[in-house]
Design a binder for these strands. Structure first.
Length: 434
RNA sequence: GGAGGGAUGACAGAGCGGCCGAAUGUACCGGUCUUGAAAACCGGCGUGGGCUUGCCCACCGUGGGUUCAAAUCCCACUCCCUCCGCCA
């Protein structure tokens, strides 16, 4: 949620920033008008309330003094005012609720350095990395045996069974088997182990309440992208960001505790409604995938460092896996609702000949913390924390990129050495390994 | 799933219709005393909102209701504890 106080103080700044994301100025003017109306009604209601409280105290005193006449008279007066107060409060709450609903739909202000743009085509590539780059090696060219899509490799090696997945849960629910399954598990273990020096490992619930989904900004705006269990008022989490952001909801943290760094591996569920065709073959786009998330609650001063650290950790995983990747600074049109700045990591996968998004590192400022009410004690008073998070990494596409990158001429796949401690003898996958 | 008990400030814990935003203790912060520390003593010590910055309003698990007046009474829900049942 954006800062209403800031909107009052510098409406032009807020309007200009949001205009970059396509929020019309008259929408903001309407919000400002609602805010003004709300405060006026609030004053009316509170004034009446104060009078009722005052009269009630007098009634109590008159009763104590056995002055029944005065008590009766004051009671009647207070009752009339009470009726007025009820009406005034109702009017105030109606406008207040409308204002809140409006605010929940307004996205975060983009950071000044976020490029303007409509969609993913306007994202700005920051840099690329590939194995051997530092030693002067050119951008990799890929051999013919690497230009086989992972769904064919997976089928041939018996480690990916999309048909069985579809039989169980419908299309876009992949089923990994044998060494393929172990690879998913290995990647999570590999990443979690790498974060354990600075990030507390969390295993949160996979479902979250509607209120929890509101905090991160996934609701009310993106309910169509989410799986809901209506009967229980629960939603399947689309990312561990959801439970981690609400882990300290409603709390006032000690400044000395910040930054609080958390990591979690969870299943992530996404409807991906509207997605179909070439984007969705194999495991390029799936309804359920595993992901390790890095997360930090921090002070505004710490947020840049927290962001850089998460980005660096995500990158270091890709380097150690020997995958070619690039960084994109997302434009205003491609950023998520709650983000102020996002950098995506995309892996190049030769079999499908495409860049695949495997991580999204975002700084949210206090936007999520305002919704989740996560604060910290400063020298004088309290302030909202900043939240930062990023994937390290989403495994479905990394899984695909690994198979395609490391496929050998004989059809087997020799995974990078960093995975050997986790994969054991299956670090080289052949048709008979699984 | 059944029966019972509970939810109050950082924590413990009183209050069970009328200056109660809330006693008291602990913790914490400041001061006195002390070479220093401890002890003792004195003072302070929740969050949010509004505006005329001094005041007003809200918050005692959540949401409704009763009343001139609700932490206190009534209803529903949530969570926690104990026992029984079921179950990885």
């Amino acid at each position: 949620m954006i800062d209403l106080v800031q909107l009052r103080r510098e409406p032009d700044v807020v309007k200009a920033a949001l205009a970059r994301r396509g929020v019309a100025t008259d929408v903001m003017d309407a919000v400002i008008a609602m805010d003004v109306a709300h405060r006026e009604l609030l004053q009316d209601a509170e004034r009446l309330r104060a009078e009722v409280k005052f009269l009630s105290r007098l009634v109590g005193e008159a009763r104590r003094d056995k002055d029944t006449d005065t008590a009766t008279e004051l009671t009647e007066k207070s009752r009339v005012l009470g009726d007025e107060e009820r009406v005034a409060t109702e009017a105030m709450e109606r406008v207040g609720a409308a204002l809140r609903n409006e605010l929940l739909m307004i996205p975060n202000l983009p950071a000044p350095d976020v490029p303007e743009g409509l969609d993913e085509n306007d994202n700005v590539e920051i840099r690329r990395w590939w194995p051997g780059m530092e030693e002067g090696a050119p951008f990799p060219t890929f051999a013919e045996h690497q230009k086989v899509p992972h769904w064919d490799i997976g089928l041939a090696l018996g480690i990916l069974d999309l048909e069985a997945g579809a039989r169980i849960a419908g299309s876009m629910f992949p089923l990994y088997r044998g060494a393929g399954s172990r690879l998913v598990r290995s990647l999570s273990a590999f990443s979690l182990d790498r974060q354990s020096d600075a990030y507390e490992e969390i295993h949160p619930p996979t479902f979250a309440l509607t209120a929890t989904m509101m905090s991160t900004g996934h609701l009310p705006k993106s309910s169509d992208d989410m799986y809901g269990v209506e009967r229980d008022g629960l939603w399947a989490i689309p990312t561990a960001e959801v439970p981690l952001t609400s882990m300290h909801a409603g709390e006032i943290l000690d400044e000395a505790r910040l930054p609080i760094r958390l990591t979690a591996e969870t299943a992530c569920f996404r409807r991906e409604s509207g997605a179909a065709g070439r984007d969705t073959r194999g495991v390029l786009r799936v309804h359920e995938f595993d992901k390790v998330e890095l997360f930090a609650y921090c002070t505004p001063e710490q947020s840049q460092e927290a962001f850089d650290d998460i980005l660096a950790r995500a990158e270091s995983l890709l380097r150690d896996l020997g995958l070619t990747y690039r960084l994109l600074l997302l434009c205003t049109g491609d950023m998520g609702t709650s983000a102020a700045r996002t950098i995506d990591l995309e892996v190049f996968s030769p079999g499908v000949d495409r860049w695949l998004e495997v991580s999204s590192v975002s700084w949210f400022g206090d936007y999520q913390a305002r919704r989740a009410q996560v604060r910290y004690r400063t020298g004088e008073g309290t302030a909202l924390v900043h939240t930062v998070n990023g994937s390290a990494l989403g495994w479905a596409r990394v899984w695909a990129a690994l198979l395609e990158t490391y496929r050998r001429a004989d059809g087997s796949v020799a995974l990078p050495g960093v995975l050997a401690p986790y994969m054991g003898a299956q670090n080289v996958i052949t048709a008979t390994t699984s």
